[in-house]
């Protein structure tokens, strides 16, 4: 039988990052993974790109991605932007408060396809959040070999400097992978250069340009020594749509481009009917789909 019941979690801490957005640190309450049989969900097996349902007591549930999967102490992290009723209520909660979580749900990024191959990642705004655990994983595996740095390239698009999110993560990756930033609203010349690095000695220079991520794609693609075999996209659907179209014209196969979708969900187990695209449930078959599948589903 399906389990609709959340496990209790404690709000351990949070830090602000970007416009109305926070990194949340949660802990499964009184539970250590694998040590308590009362544990209702399979938290050991979280894959990058999967999500969980956060239950804010007396308010409701909504899906969020992990930026750090549960560790052995049951601690995990999520990046959450204040948007609707659930997140607004969450933002009023204090450290030590109790909430609920159930998951993990959905299919994550196609790790078998990515597997040490040249990978282009394009993310927009908080669409970077579902990619955090994956980039961490890939960047770490590339760290040992400097020549591999060009195997992973990130294009990160935001409306303006204030809406650039996940700052600590991007600062960390700067040492590991090549990053291109795009801003719809570019700061004045007198403004501080976004993401300028004080210590550039072991960091790859971050390129920041004005406009949509499409503008920087040719340059980002030319960074690779051989064309990328996989592209991972997450952000506004209009953005993903245009990037996927561009990449197929560039020559990538549509089954090598993957998009993570966002949909309203109430159950996350394929019952409530809110998220299906054609006959596929985003909560079960997604949230990651290949561009090929989405085109067959006429999904975007």
């Amino acid at each position: 039988m399906l389990n609709h019941i959340p496990d209790s979690i404690e709000l351990v801490d949070y830090i602000d990052d970007g416009e109305q957005a926070r990194h949340y640190h949660f802990r499964l309450l009184n539970l250590k993974i694998g040590q308590n049989k009362n544990h209702q969900h399979n938290w050991q097996q979280v894959q990058p790109g999967q999500f969980f349902m956060l239950n804010v007591p007396s308010v409701g549930e909504a899906p969020f991605t992990f930026t750090e999967p549960p560790n052995e102490q049951g601690e995990f992290r999520a990046f959450i932007r204040q948007m609707g009723q659930v997140t607004s209520a969450l933002f009023t909660m204090q450290r030590g408060d109790i909430l609920g979580a159930r998951g993990p749900f959905g299919s994550g990024w196609p790790l078998d396809k990515i597997n040490n191959n040249n990978t282009l990642i394009v993310a927009g705004g908080c669409g970077l959040a579902p990619l955090v655990t994956l980039i961490d994983k890939l960047a770490d595996s590339l760290m040992d070999k400097p020549e591999n740095k060009q195997k992973l390239v990130l294009v990160y698009a935001a409306r303006n400097k204030a809406t650039q999110m996940l700052t600590p993560e991007r600062a960390r990756w700067q040492k590991q992978i090549k990053i291109f930033n795009t801003l719809d609203e570019y700061p004045n010349a007198s403004d501080e250069y976004p993401n300028a690095s004080d210590d550039a000695s072991d960091e790859l220079p971050v390129t920041t340009v004005e406009g949509s991520p499409l503008i920087i794609l040719p340059k980002a693609l030319s960074t690779f020594t051989s064309p990328p075999t996989t592209a991972l996209l997450c952000g506004p659907e209009v953005m993903m749509n245009s990037i996927a179209t561009y990449l197929t014209e560039y020559g990538m196969a549509s089954d090598a481009i993957f998009l993570a979708l966002e949909r309203r969900m109430h159950c996350a187990v394929g019952l409530c009917g809110h998220c299906y695209i054609n006959h596929q449930y985003v909560c079960k078959s997604g949230p990651t789909f290949s561009w090929q599948t989405l085109q067959q589903l006429k999904g975007l």
């Binding site: 409701g60 549930e61 109430h266 019952l271 409530c272 009917g273 809110h274």
Partner: peptide, 9 residues
């Protein structure tokens, strides 16, 4: 069979 959910305080 579509359904929504709501919290009753």
């Amino acid at each position: 069979s579509c359904y929504g959910t709501r919290a009753i305080k």
